[in-house]
Amino acid sequence: MHWFESQLADLDRLAQEYTQAQQKQAGDIVNVSENTRLKRSQFIDAVQALVDKVIKIKGVGACAAYHDGLILAQAAQSPDIDAFGAVVQESIRAAQQGGSSLRLGDIQQIVIVGAINKLAMLSVGPIILCISCPKDINLASVLS
């Protein structure tokens, strides 16, 4: 497993732990609430940490995470940040519709390659991680 895959696996684990914390029966609502909050902040902090690491990789132009098409974590201020969100939302919706008719299962990854740049969108728990880079960059290799 290369570096980025292991980072995504860690995020997936934290997302699952958060979901499990949410599903616990609220016999003791105060402690359940505290635990859920802790798990959520561990997951979000890990997303922000990954975004901060990915942007430092040579060749990566932008990295951000979105929830329902709205920005959740970003590495640096970018003028296109809201446009990315709109593209993410549209792409995920289209992929989900196509995915269900083709029985692809839950959408895990979408890549849009343009003449100049490309954009990879990866689904991790409730969020979508977006990485943009020049078209010629091999993302799998720079993220390994």
């Binding site: 959520r40 979000i44 929830h67 920005i71 959740l72 974590a73 970003q74 969100g85």
Partner: peptide, 9 residues
């Protein structure tokens, strides 16, 4: 503020 972050929370 990151609107998605605040809304998610």
């Amino acid at each position: 503020a990151l609107l998605g972050r605040v809304r998610f929370e």
